[in-house]
């Protein structure tokens, strides 16, 4: 490091390589990404947003909702659930007897108690979840054994992890989910809940509007600030507006007045309702609830 030139070269190489790695390479690898196909369908993902929802993303950006909310769900693992759909010609009691013969299998030894407990007092009602394994091979082996004795079963993949258990998503968020977001609002702090699937979790636009106007009116202990300025309080005209919020008394407007959302509030809610991330993808498989049972 004797000359200015050598410092310059060292710094240039250092930053230049990381620029190639973290700017250029992602641009090349992902910059022209296209829609992907939803698993076991021919449908594309993600869909383009409607006009109102696209504008709503700008409202979300402008008010900095991402300062408190993330839009990315994490997953710690997957579980494989084997569900009986038909016993073939077996009687429930015979079947329970049969399962005991499976317990000697090395893979299943860990699940003996769980299976026995779930079959305890079972009267043969179907479908019946028999096994939830964290290991795919165990589930496959179970399904194979059942098939061999003429019992039909389905194996569902379930994403696991605290975020998913909280109902914040059916699977982890992946790059494809954000394809059309301009700008992408991943967020980095969960002062409020994750919103990756808020459109599935709280699909009622009126609930969303009431929550934005007065968060405490729908979530009593809420610490979310209210966004009252996205609404207009005005005198009721000849007839009440169909858009007027229907709020509990303590939050409602004075008599003769009504609270109606401004366009920005409606766009914001359209955006929130467009957040779903509820389809299985190749890189994030799971079995949607309706298909499993």
């Amino acid at each position: 490091m004797k000359t200015g030139l050598s410092i310059f070269i060292a710094a240039f190489i250092a930053l230049g390589t990381s620029w190639c790695g973290f700017v250029l390479a992602p641009l090349l690898q992902l910059g022209s990404a296209q829609q992907t196909v939803i698993l076991q369908t021919t449908d594309n993902w993600p869909l383009q947003r409607t006009g109102a929802a696209t504008l709503g993303l700008q409202v979300y950006r402008a008010y900095g909702c991402a300062a408190c909310h993330t839009e990315q769900v994490r997953q710690t693992g997957s579980a494989f659930e084997v569900t009986l759909t038909s016993l073939g010609n077996q009687k429930p009691a015979d079947f329970i007897e049969f399962t005991k013969s499976l317990f000697v299998l090395p893979g299943l030894a860990n699940y003996t108690n769980a299976i026995a407990a779930s079959l305890n007092g079972w009267n043969g009602g179907l479908p019946k979840t028999l096994l939830t394994a964290t290991d795919k091979d165990v589930a496959t082996e179970m399904a194979d054994r059942l098939k061999a004795v003429g019992v039909k079963s389905e194996t569902a993949i379930i994403a696991t992890g605290p975020d998913i258990a909280r109902g914040w998503g059916s699977r982890l968020s992946v790059a494809a989910d954000f394809l059309y977001d301009q700008p992408v609002q991943l967020g980095s702090l969960r002062a409020g809940p994750d919103l990756a699937n808020i459109g599935v979790r709280a699909p009622d636009a009126n609930w969303q509007l009431a929550h934005l106007y007065a968060p405490k009116s729908v979530t009593p202990n809420s610490t979310m600030p209210s966004f009252k300025f996205l609404f207009e309080v005005r005198k009721v005209g000849a007839s009440p507006s169909p858009e007027a919020l229907n709020l509990p008394k303590e939050f409602a407007a004075a008599d003769g007045f009504e609270i109606v959302p401004k366009p920005a509030a409606k766009q914001l809610v359209a955006y929130l309702l467009s957040l779903k991330a509820n389809v299985p993808l190749y890189e994030a498989p799971f079995t949607p609830a309706t298909a499993a049972k």
């Binding site: 700017v23 992602p26 992902l30 301009q182």
Partner: peptide
């Protein structure tokens, strides 16, 4: 140039550049 423009890069390329 990449993140403060009218046409942003696609999807998660944005946060990657942002983190960098």
């Amino acid at each position: 140039i990449l993140l403060n423009s009218h046409q942003l890069p696609r999807g998660v390329v944005q946060p990657i550049i942002g983190w960098w």
